[in-house]
């Protein structure tokens, strides 16, 4: 005799992740069109990505080429849109190339910190027990130390450079992911459809991969998009303080660090890289806020 189990009922709160791809993309743009802040954020991010991919072909000057005969030219002189710095390098070109560094750092950090934090969060939230206790103690301890200071100290100790700043940021950043994902997993575990799975004899890993992981997609995306801005500003701060990305690399924080000595004579050195950081952070934040609001209502609304 076979017993017919009822189909696993998906509670209304759970988003059906395997939607038609086409419709998901259409929905994305339809939602985006409703919010002008979301559109602005999206456009800024799009421009940023395009610049960081194609930047090396659109820069008017070599961003690393020093020419003392042209040093500290104000904007709009000698073909230099945003002027030149103390070594005669073209600031516009440097800012364009700096975008790439910011994007690489933001994305790599979120990838590393996000992956590691998510794994820890899932282990903690799904398997509970002493593992959970130990991991969450570690998270608590780390969260009780200022993020930017932690990144600074780690970076100062392990040394500067692009790779090391990413590592430092990731070490500082994974805890947020672990914390949030853990609480998401805990909440999901309590959902009726998971209980139903357990009751129908689906294995622990089956539940984890088929039911819990897909539903973590949304919180991970939201959190990642909100964190990238933090990472980009943190990197700029660390580089500004003389750690992080080192000269002559045209990181925006770097440029501000070098430019600050000329603040009384050449304002453009400190103005434009800062504006670049601000617009980038603004775009990422706006987009992240919009994404959170949209996906949140989607979660609640259906």
């Amino acid at each position: 005799m076979t017993v017919d189990f009822p189909k696993v009922p998906h509670t209304t709160k759970i988003r059906n992740v395997r939607k038609n791809r086409q419709s998901a993309i259409t929905t994305f743009f339809l939602n985006l069109m409703r919010s002008w802040t979301g559109i602005i954020g999206f456009i800024i991010i799009l421009i940023l990505l395009l610049i960081s991919i194609f930047g090396q072909w659109i820069v008017p000057f070599d961003p690393l080429l020093a020419d003392f005969s042209k040093k500290l030219l104000p904007p709009m002189t000698g073909g230099h849109l945003l002027g030149t710095d103390q070594l005669g390098r073209d600031i516009f070109s440097r800012i364009i190339m700096g975008a790439k560094i910011s994007v690489i750092i933001g994305l790599s950090t979120v990838l590393i910190a996000g992956t590691f934090g998510t794994i820890v969060g899932i282990i903690s939230g799904y398997f509970r027990g002493w593992v959970d206790v130990v991991l969450m103690r570690i998270v608590d301890v780390q969260l009780s130390f200022p993020f930017i200071l932690l990144v600074l100290v780690i970076n100062a100790i392990i040394g500067s450079g692009l790779r090391n700043i990413i590592i430092s940021l990731a070490i500082g950043g994974w805890v947020i992911f672990a914390r949030v994902i853990r609480s998401e997993v805990l909440a999901l575990r309590e959902q009726e459809f998971i209980t139903a799975c357990v009751a129908t004899g689906v294995s622990k890993f089956g539940i984890l991969f088929k039911h819990i992981l897909p539903n973590l997609f949304t919180p991970i995306i939201i959190l990642s998009s909100l964190q990238i801005g933090t990472y980009i500003i943190a990197e700029a701060s660390v580089s500004f303080l003389g750690f992080g990305v080192q000269p002559p690399e045209p990181a925006w924080g770097n440029m501000l660090n070098e430019g600050k000595d000329y603040i009384f004579s050449s304002w453009w050195l400190i103005t434009f890289p800062g504006i670049a950081i601000m617009i980038t952070a603004l775009g990422v934040n706006l987009f992240g806020d919009w994404l959170r609001d949209t996906l949140d209502t989607e979660l609640k609304g259906e």
Partner: peptide, 29 residues
């Protein structure tokens, strides 16, 4: 507030120095 959260504080500091110390010369840098 949205704008304020996007401005890196060290850059704001530099801009303030530029205006109030370098240009207006009313506050120490």
């Amino acid at each position: 507030t949205v704008l304020g959260q996007a401005v890196p504080s060290f850059w704001l500091g530099l801009i303030l120095i530029y205006f109030f110390a370098a240009q207006l010369n009313i506050l120490p840098s």
